[in-house]
Simulated assay, not measured.
Amino acid sequence: MSSLLTMIGRCTRLTRRDVDALIMSLMLPIMMMVLFVYLFGGAIQTGGDYVTYVAPGVLLLCTVWGAAQTGVGVANDMSTGIVDRFRSMDVGGAAMLGGHVMASIIKNVTSTFVVIGVALLIGFRPKADALQWLAAAGVLVAFILAMSWLAAVVGLLTKSTDAAASFAFVMMFLPYVSSAFVPIRTLPGWLQGVAEHQPSTAIIESVRGFLLDRPVGDHAWIGLAWSGGILLVSVVLAGVFFQRRAD
Rank of each mutant, 00 (worst) to 15 (best):
S2G: 07
S2F: 13
L5T: 09
M7R: 10
M7E: 14
I8H: 10
G9F: 13
C11G: 07
R13V: 14
R13N: 12
L14E: 13
L14V: 13
T15I: 11
V19Y: 13
A21Y: 07
L22S: 12
I23W: 07
I23V: 14
M24A: 12
L26K: 00
M27H: 02
I30Q: 03
M33K: 03
L39Q: 06
L39F: 13
G42S: 01
G47C: 04
T52I: 07
T52Q: 13
Y53L: 04
G57E: 04
V58T: 01
V58D: 00
L59S: 05
C62L: 01
T63R: 00
A68D: 00
V74F: 06
V74T: 04
A75T: 02
A75M: 02
N76R: 15
T80V: 12
I82Q: 14
D84P: 09
F86S: 09
D90P: 05
D90R: 15
V91W: 10
L97N: 02
G99H: 12
V101A: 07
V101D: 04
S104G: 14
V109G: 01
S111M: 02
F113V: 15
F113G: 13
F113M: 13
V114D: 00
V114Y: 00
V115R: 00
I116G: 05
G117V: 11
L120P: 06
K127D: 14
D129A: 12
A130F: 15
A136D: 11
A137F: 15
G138P: 11
G138N: 09
L140Y: 08
L140D: 08
V141Q: 12
A142C: 12
M147L: 15
A151G: 07
V154G: 01
L156F: 06
L156T: 03
L157A: 07
T158V: 09
S166Y: 03
A168G: 02
V170N: 02
F173D: 00
F173S: 05
P175L: 01
V177I: 14
A180H: 02
A180S: 11
I184Y: 03
T186N: 11
G189R: 15
W190V: 15
G193R: 08
A195D: 03
E196K: 13
H197V: 06
H197D: 08
I203F: 05
I203P: 05
G209V: 09
F210C: 08
D213P: 04
P215K: 09
V216N: 11
V216W: 09
H219A: 15
G223C: 09
W226Y: 15
W226E: 09
G229F: 12
V233D: 01
G239C: 03
F241I: 03
F242V: 03
Q243M: 13
A246H: 07
